[in-house]
């Protein structure tokens, strides 16, 4: 079971991609994209995990030689979340514009409206 967490990350990402491809509502598409991106959080945190490792905040209980989980991937996850929020907000704003122009947010029907 040592690769279990990585499998979870891959599964979350695949589910998100599946949702994007089969979506019938653009808001649902944007949320699915966020779900796919969440797979990267799980993967990053899984890569940095260590059994028995503590949180990387040093003080009286956590010293220099205490095993801690990897703070580098945690920092990357934080960056990831911020970028995800920025992307999601941009996409939702685009969805609002599409809804105004076409009165429809079903991606299957939008192709015909453009033609």
């Amino acid at each position: 079971m040592t690769y279990y967490a990585y499998a979870v990350a891959a599964a979350v990402m695949l589910l998100g991609i599946f949702g994007v491809a089969t979506s019938r509502n653009l808001v649902h598409t944007v949320v699915c994209l966020s779900v796919a991106q969440s797979g990267t959080y799980v993967l990053l945190l899984a890569v940095g995990f260590q059994y028995g490792g503590l949180a990387p905040v040093f003080g009286s209980q956590v010293g220099r030689n205490t095993p801690v989980v990897d703070p580098v991937v945690q920092a990357l996850t934080l960056t990831d979340i911020v970028v995800s929020a920025a992307v999601t907000s941009m996409l939702l704003a685009l969805v609002i514009q599409i809804a105004k122009r076409h009165r429809d947010i079903d991606p299957d029907r939008l192709g015909r409206l453009e033609g």
Partner: peptide, 11 residues
Amino acid sequence: PGFGGSTHPYR
């Protein structure tokens, strides 16, 4: 490397 191991050079 396997999940939860103790080798983390960047850490």
